[in-house]
Design a binder for these strands. Sequence first.
DNA 1: TATCCAAGGTAAGTT
DNA 2: AACTTACCTTGGATA
Length: 302
Amino acid sequence: MEQGVIPVESLSGGFDLQSTIESGQSYLWHREDGTTYETDRAYGDDGWYWTTFRPADRTDPAVVRVRQLDGRLEWESGVDAEAHLRQRLRLDDDLDAILDATPDDRLLADAYETYRGMRLVRDPPFGTLVSFICSAQMRVARIHGMQAALRRTYGQEVTFKGNSYRAYPTPEALAGATEAELRELGLGYRAPYVQRSAELVATGDRDPVDATGRPYEAAREFLTGFVGVGQKVADCILLFSLGYLEAVPLDTWIRSTIEEYYPECDRGNYDETSRAIRAAFGGEYAGYAQTYVFHYLRNGDD
DNA sequence: TATCCAAGGTAAGTT
DNA sequence: AACTTACCTTGGATA
């Protein structure tokens, strides 16, 4: 077994593991005790989270577990996972600099203050694609539960420290699923969207990674070529997986935030409203502002 | 106990 | 191009 410790004080702006993982940006981590996100807000004080990833030099997926305890980020894995974690949890983002670059704004300041240390994630593209296809008209806990069900049903088994885990399903595995099977897992009308989009990836017709490198709005447009992916879900994939930190998904929470705090940004359509709110959120790191505001307001301003 | 409602929207059909 | 409507399921609110 490999393991390591990353001192939180070595990270600019600190780190908050539970907020980062359970703030609705990632559905690909799981609590070691099997409970879903938000069943106990204090879980992150010392609880382990696990996920799987595919190391570049291996064919089989690897498990990695992390927890935050006494200012230390501890990890365990079957492989050396530190580089992966730094990328996956964006540990090298200069949060202090990002905060400094954020517009002087009461709402943003309160949100950043309340959840200091929360970072964006950089999740694997396919899992992010599927997660956010599943997110349509769903609650955070259920979206998370759907991903757990997909792992259990279609994921490759991985053993770590004597325990059995399931890797996130491959595109091939979900492409081979039937709509009826996916409905059995509770995906509802999202079931055919997931199957068809997985098929696009599995056959090579379209890969979410190929959005990378395009200008932001062109990348968003590219992603809407998947089934079940509109502009909002495309923005989530860009922000939470592909590193487009200026992306601001216009979900119900941000729309009501715009109505209450930034009414002049409501331009009546997605494209123009997106441009306006991204400008209000400071442009380059607008997605960071979005994620803090989303988490802050969804938890009731506390 | 029964009914209603909204949940991090998208696709398809209509004007 | 802008505007409706249907869509699965379920936990929590309301009656």
